[in-house]
Amino acid sequence: MADIPAYAVSRATRSSRIGMAIGLIVLIILATAPWWAGRADLRLLIEIFYYLALAQLWNLLAGYTGLVSVGQQAFVGLGGYTLFALAAFGGVNPLAAIALAGVVAAIFALPTAFLVFRLRGAYFAIGTWVVAEVYRLGFAQVSALGGGSGMSLPADVVRSIADGRQAREWLVYWVALIIVLAAMAIVYALLRSRQGLALTAIRDSEPASESLGVNTYRTKLVIYIAVAFATGLVGALIFLQKLRISPDAAFSVNDWTAFVIFIVVIGGIGRIEGPIIGVIVFFVLRELFVDFGAWYLMLLGAVAVVIMLLAPRGLWGLLTDRWDIQLFPVRRALVVKETKDSG
């Protein structure tokens, strides 16, 4: 078209620049944690990292493409078991096995997708759960992997990770940090890209996305497989740290889905900042309620209900209702420099 107003498109905002600066400082502090934090602190941080990674991934899946899976533990478990099988019987270096665990999870995700993508809404959710249960029961039958009681990572494999316990724990810590950073960076880059427009559009209206030229089926399928890959990777990391795996732990709907959904929903679903807020709240609550035993889960549930009632779009939604902030600038703001003289 001939005569359009002069404009520029800006992507960063002041709050996002401040956010990036704070993020960088936090990153330096975290990267040096082995030198200033104790063993227990490192373990806790690793746990926070993998929950943050799982939450970012589930948020991408459920918050953007609308695929509300309650069966992501399928890929956590597949990842964990792949690592154990490859390291214990395949002689594969455990760190290399982490990447392969992602590949195996993605391969299993493909037929799983063809099955569960036929289902809609609540049926999809239940379908994903059923599939995860099938995997759990399946692995309990494999006696080479310890059957229902599971297995430990053999001592020589553990020794092959690094020289000595401390070196191993530090290494696992840094791998966990790298994985969570990579997960965040990839989700962020994705949301800023052309595909990010499609994902955000699908989040807000699937029929309208389709009418505007977005191949919603393929977009969802690609995200489902990619999220399974990364979830498998995180699963491998989780059990590399634990050094023990069993079907109940590996395919736990409580640990790998319920807590993750809690984190995303209270933080703010469909926003990249949501899981970060959610994971902080989750771990603060957990440390506070640590003495309450079984009551802890009920308290967690009560907190979730209260937050969902008061802030349906999560705590991050509550903040952005009041202030126009974004830590991760995924938007495109149009700055019109001059309006043309219309004749």
Binding site: A198, R203, D204, L212, V214, R331, R332
Partner: peptide, 12 residues
């Protein structure tokens, strides 16, 4: 697309 700006709606 309620969470996107008008400009971003068109960009899709």
């Amino acid at each position: 697309f309620e969470g996107m700006t008008v400009f971003e709606n068109l960009l899709v």
